[in-house]
Every structure is written in structure tokens, then in C-alpha cells.
Simulated scan of single mutants.
Amino acid sequence: MPDSPRRSRPVGLAVFLLIAGALGLLAAFELSMEKVLLLSDPAHIPSCNVGVLVGCSTNLSSWQGAVFGFSNPFLGLMAWPVVITIAVAILAGATFSRWFWAAFNVGVAGALIFVGWLIYQSIYVLDVLCPWCMLTWAVTIPTFWALTLYNLREGHIPVSARVRRLAGSWLSWVPLITVVCYAVVVLLAQAQMNAVPRVLIDLQNARG
């Protein structure tokens, strides 16, 4: 049975992707600018450096910040405009084939895996929380869940009818699932870094 018109044009998903893409692009742009400024002036202090725990310079200067031989934020400058373009195309009435949705999902899943690795490196290796990096984490996580559950519900990813029904019911729970994921990251950061009091101290020192 063909999909209904409502499901063939997921306006809600498109609006979310547009917002997430814009926020991700903002984070990538800010980090890229800071990286360029650091390259031109090693003494430059990034505006996102709030204190010992909260800052960008450690991440940008580490090998983890340039895994593929260039600064990680440059990936965001390339990837997030794709997300924005897809969202705008959907809002304009475009429809995509199953293979396109599946390929899109693979790309977002790859982004989530990379973000998970970066979260681990920040918490357990670098001992620093980068504000713009965290914004990237914050939008990548719900993007993965929203897109994956949508694709499962629509059958773009081959699954049983039962899984499709479950994905459809879980789709409305994406905000809660996202909050749970955020909570896990916060708990890991607190357990490893004693993050909450250190962040508060950094913020107080920045204001003082």
C-alpha cells in the first residue's frame, strides 16, 4: 500500500532538521573561525574559553580535533548544509526514494558514532567541555533518533511490520529519549570530571 500524503511529506521532521542543521552549522562555523584565528595567532584566546573545564582551545589543538587531517569543524561546515538543504527540499514538496533516506540515515548514524567518540575523548582524555562541541552533540543525538525512527516507521529501512509500528509509537518520544541521552552524558561527565561544580566555578570566575 502506498504511503499516505501526510507521511510522504514529513513536514514536522523537515522543520526539526532545518533547526538542527542551522544550530549545527552555527557551532561548526564558530569552531572553524576559532581554529583559523588560532592558526594565524597561536596566542589567540578563543571566545568560548570560559575557564579550566569549559573551553575550545584544548579540543581544537588536540589530535582528536583533527582526526582526518583537518579540523573537525570543517566536516560540520560540509555536512550541516546538506541537512538544511534536505529539510528545505522537503518543505518545498520534494520526495525522496527509499535508498536516499537509507543513505541519509547511514550518514547521520556515522555522525552519531563520531560524536560518541568525541564525547568519550572530551570526558575521559582531554578533561574539558567545549561549548560549541556540546551544541554539536546536542543536535546530532536527536537528529539520529528522529530520522532513524521515521525511516523505520516508513519502511525506508527494511524491518517487520511490528518494528514499524513500534518505531511509529516511539517517534513521539524522541524528546524524552534525547533528554535521557543528555542525562547519560552529564552523569558520565560528573562521575569522571566532577563537572557540575567545576563548571559553576568557571562561570563565576568568568563573571568576576
Rank of each mutant, 00 (worst) to 15 (best):
G107M: 06
G107A: 11
A109V: 05
G110N: 05
G110H: 04
A111K: 01
L112A: 14
L112V: 11
I113S: 07
F114H: 12
F114A: 15
V115Q: 09
V115N: 09
G116L: 11
G116T: 02
W117L: 14
W117V: 13
W117I: 10
I119P: 00
Y120R: 12
Y120G: 03
Q121V: 10
Q121S: 14
Q121T: 10
I123L: 13
I123G: 02
Y124R: 06
Y124L: 08
V125R: 11
D127M: 08
D127C: 04
D127Q: 12
D127V: 08
V128I: 11
L129R: 07
C130D: 11
C130A: 13
P131W: 11
W132C: 04
W132A: 07
W132G: 02
W132R: 06
C133S: 07
C133N: 09
C133E: 01
M134H: 01
M134W: 06
M134T: 15
M134G: 02
M134I: 08
L135T: 12
L135S: 03
L135G: 02
T136E: 04
T136L: 10
W137M: 07
A138I: 08
A138T: 14
A138P: 00
V139T: 07
T140M: 12
T140D: 07
P142V: 09
P142T: 08
P142Y: 04
T143Y: 06
T143F: 01
W145H: 10
W145Y: 15
W145P: 04
A146I: 09
A146G: 05
L147Q: 13
T148A: 14
T148C: 09
L149I: 02
Y150V: 03
Y150R: 08
L152V: 04
L152D: 06
L152G: 09
R153Q: 15
E154A: 15
G155N: 00
I157P: 05
P158N: 00
V159Q: 02
S160L: 07
A161S: 13
A161W: 02
R162A: 14
R162G: 03
R164L: 05
R165N: 10
A167C: 05
A167K: 00
G168T: 07
S169I: 08
W170F: 15
L171W: 12
S172V: 14
W173S: 09
V174L: 11
P175L: 11
P175E: 03
L176M: 08
L176E: 05
I177P: 00
T178W: 12
T178S: 14
T178V: 08
V179I: 15
V180L: 15
Y182R: 05
Y182I: 10
Y182E: 00
A183C: 08
V184S: 00
V185W: 01
L187V: 14
L187I: 11
L188Q: 07
L188S: 07
A189K: 00
A189L: 01
Q190W: 01
A191F: 09
N194T: 04
V196K: 07
P197L: 04
R198G: 03
V199A: 11
I201F: 06
I201T: 13
I201Y: 06
I201W: 10
I201H: 13
D202A: 10
D202Y: 10
D202R: 13
L203N: 01
L203K: 06
L203R: 06
Q204H: 11
